[in-house]
Amino acid sequence: MTSFSASDAALEGFHLIRRRWRIVLGWAGFNLLSLIMLIVLSAMLSVIAGGGRQAMALAGLVIGLSVLFAQAILAAAVFRVEMRPEEPAFMHLRLGRDELRLVLIWLITLTGGWVLWWLSMLAGHAVGAGGIWLELAAMALAVYFGVRFALTPPIGFAERKVDFPGSWRLTRGRAAPMLGMLALSACLIGLVMVTVMAALAVIAFASGGLDGLAGIFGGAEAMKRHPGLFLLAFAIEIILTPVLWALAMAPLAAAYRAFAGTDPPPLGEPLRL
């Protein structure tokens, strides 16, 4: 096992962006293409559904799964850069078993979290006024399970299997540094988002005052009044999405490499577009 630093691992996403910034920009292009395809798919499904409630629900499910798969492709691309950079793929983007495995892991995780929340709410209502402590205990338990199972996605990518027990074994005795890494990573992601939004708000306010602020946070009407600001906010959102995925997934890959004892990819590898 190589040494593990929670702070270094949390910063791995920034190192990835610095080393592979061209690829991250390429991922922004993929994000834009995915959004365009999603809009087209939504329009097609709306026409096919014909306004029926069940048909619209099915259309919503299809769109939700499409978004999930698109995000899984980005997350897997981050893992591919971090753990299998030599694997052939255009900008490290693929749609295959690795991505399907990530979707399955996320669905299992979301289902488990929902079940735990539902049981805590049920127990809280049964107990009555003291149920708040059960809900707090359930939240603490959810955080603990989240930390212990956090390495399931990188394990799924690196070892090509859905292995929740494997994550539990790798994080045994390392829950505290893992929690520190995840907390620091979440704070850094939040800081990036707040900084970007604050800068965008300053630009909008300087350009059009309060009406300019409405131009970036409003809908179609805002786009008509301030198309330039609206498009700027849209472009930043397209670029920010892969950046956030890099900041979120790269630390998990770094933690997996440290705990599993695998060597990191060479930093001097030439960029591939």
Results as ranks from 00 to 15, higher is better:
Met1Phe: 07
Ser5Phe: 06
Ser5Tyr: 00
Asp8Asn: 14
Leu11Gly: 01
Phe14Pro: 03
His15Gly: 13
His15Leu: 14
Arg20Thr: 02
Trp21Arg: 13
Leu25Thr: 08
Gly26Cys: 15
Trp27Arg: 05
Gly29Ile: 06
Gly29Ala: 04
Asn31Pro: 00
Asn31Ala: 15
Leu33Cys: 15
Leu35Trp: 03
Met37Gly: 11
Val40Ile: 13
Leu41Trp: 12
Leu41Asp: 14
Ala43Phe: 05
Ala43Lys: 08
Ala43Trp: 07
Met44Gln: 04
Met44Asn: 01
Met44Phe: 08
Met44Trp: 00
Ser46Leu: 04
Gly50Glu: 09
Gly50Tyr: 13
Gly50Arg: 09
Gly51Ile: 10
Ala57His: 05
Gly60Gln: 03
Gly60Ala: 04
Ile63Ala: 08
Leu65Gly: 11
Val67Pro: 07
Phe69Gln: 12
Phe69Val: 13
Ala72Gln: 01
Ala75Gly: 09
Ala76Lys: 00
Ala77Tyr: 00
Val81Asp: 02
Glu82Thr: 10
Glu82Val: 13
Pro85Ile: 02
Glu86Arg: 13
Glu87Gly: 00
Pro88Ser: 00
Phe90Glu: 05
His92Gln: 06
Arg94Gln: 11
Glu99His: 05
Arg101Asn: 07
Leu102Glu: 03
Trp106Tyr: 08
Trp106Asp: 05
Leu107Cys: 11
Leu107Pro: 01
Thr109Tyr: 14
Thr111Trp: 04
Gly112Pro: 01
Val115Ala: 15
Val115Tyr: 15
Trp117Gln: 15
Trp118Met: 14
Trp118Glu: 15
Leu122Phe: 14
Leu122Glu: 11
Leu122Trp: 10
Ala123Pro: 00
Ala123Asp: 00
Val127Gly: 06
Val127Ala: 05
Gly128His: 12
Ala129Pro: 06
Trp133Met: 10
Trp133Lys: 02
Leu134Gly: 13
Leu134Asp: 04
Met139Cys: 09
Ala140Val: 12
Val143Asn: 07
Val143Pro: 02
Val143Leu: 14
Glu159Phe: 04
Asp163Met: 11
Asp163Gln: 12
Ser167Glu: 03
Arg169Met: 10
Gly173Leu: 06
Arg174Phe: 09
Arg174Tyr: 06
Pro177Tyr: 09
Gly180Lys: 12
Ser185Arg: 08
Ser185Phe: 02
Ala186Ser: 06
Leu188Thr: 07
Ile189Cys: 11
Gly190Cys: 08
Val192Ala: 08
Thr195Leu: 15
Val196Asn: 01
Met197Tyr: 11
Ala198Thr: 14
Phe205Ile: 15
Asp211Ser: 14
Gly212Gln: 03
Ala214Met: 09
Ala214Leu: 03
Gly215Pro: 02
Gly215Phe: 02
Gly218Tyr: 00
Ala220Cys: 00
Met223Ala: 09
Lys224Asn: 05
Arg225Met: 13
His226Leu: 06
Pro227His: 07
Ala233Asn: 12
Phe234His: 13
Ala235Val: 13
Ala235Ser: 11
Ala235Gly: 07
Ile239Lys: 02
Leu240Met: 12
Pro242Arg: 14
Val243Ile: 11
Trp245Ala: 13
Leu247Ser: 01
Leu247Val: 08
Ala248Phe: 03
Met249Ser: 05
Pro251Gly: 00
Thr262Tyr: 05
Asp263Gly: 00
Asp263Met: 11
Pro264Asp: 06
Pro264Ala: 12
Leu267Phe: 01
Glu269Lys: 14
Arg272Leu: 12
Arg272Trp: 06
Arg272Asp: 00
Arg272Gly: 09
